[in-house]
Design a protein around this nucleic acid. Structure first.
Lengths: 160, 160
DNA sequence: TCTCGATTGACAGCATACTTACTATACGGA
DNA sequence: TCCGTATAGTAAGTATGCTGTCAATCGAGA
């Protein structure tokens, strides 16, 4: 019976499920999902980034990100502007309303992040985060969408 | 920048993403998803369980589970039989083909589970699993679909 | 300069996940 | 027995997350 409950895959799925539930609960006043939040934060950090590079920066599937961007644009939190140099790409920018939302939501997000680890003793929280960070990093290539944080810098080399 | 990458929520999402990718890769010969695998295992452990109880046993959303069961039935890995005592419920059983698949796929699943933790030192693997088990358990009520392992036993009390 | 391979964003399709709502059924108490 | 409440399964709607494919565009090399 506990062959299932102690399997790493089961624990990761369950923990992700719990983490999303906590995030949504803490942030329900803002109608923003974890994925949408991560996108906004990254666009703020890299104004003028394009969708493909954004997907690498937050380790998202490119196809999925398309609809996420659509929803953020529909809510007027971001804008898409055509790139002057490349007719294929559309550059992403926060709107004022998006920037304001981000400022407002941050306390709720931090409360959510804290709640996820709350049940553990402080020392155990640190240990868990350290091990997870290490594991995610070492397993980066195993995922279908490896994280490429450095990709975000490329467009800066070209445009600024 | 690393405010995002070290956030627990981000790490949990990323780790789940990696875990699923590894599972799918190891098991691609069997055309079975992690969720479908967990369902089959639990149906084998509790033959004649109904869908609602199954959802509690594997901490799945009941609505989602409906379509999962449909697909498993379409692939002829499980059967649904009407309950003699309750016209509302349909009881779930593995078919021979489902039982055979489960036997065959187990080595691949175990390889996948091992690969997820491979990059860590053996002692760290134990630590991580112990902390995660603890955290998932203590956060059980925070998720929208709390795990109710004991629910699986109820129908045994009535039928066997 | 022209063409070929790579890249970008869009789309279709499948599979999780969750919400709400609806129907059929079951069951306990008046 | 009848009624209110609870439960099982289903469906519709939204949002990830992945696989493909496609057309438009870009860029590099012949």
């Amino acid at each position: 019976m506990d062959a299932v409950y102690t399997a790493p895959g089961y624990l990761f799925r369950r923990m992700q499920q719990i983490a999303v539930a906590i995030f949504v609960e803490e942030c329900k006043a803002y109608d923003l999902t974890p994925v949408q939040y991560a996108s906004l934060v990254s666009i703020r950090a890299h104004p003028g980034i394009d969708a493909t590079r954004l997907s690498a920066v937050i380790a998202f599937d490119r196809s999925t990100l398309g609809s996420v961007i659509e929803r953020l644009e529909a809510k007027a939190y971001i804008e898409r502007k055509p790139s002057p140099g490349d007719k294929r790409t559309k550059l992403l920018y926060l709107t004022k309303s998006g920037a304001a939302l981000l400022r407002d939501i941050i306390p709720s997000v931090e409360r959510a992040q804290a709640r996820m680890l709350q049940p553990l003793k402080p020392a155990d929280r640190k240990t868990l985060l350290a091990l997870l960070t290490q594991l995610v990093d070492l397993n980066n290539e195993a995922s279908r969408v490896p994280l490429r944080a450095e990709d975000a810098l490329e467009h800066l080399g070209k445009t600024g």
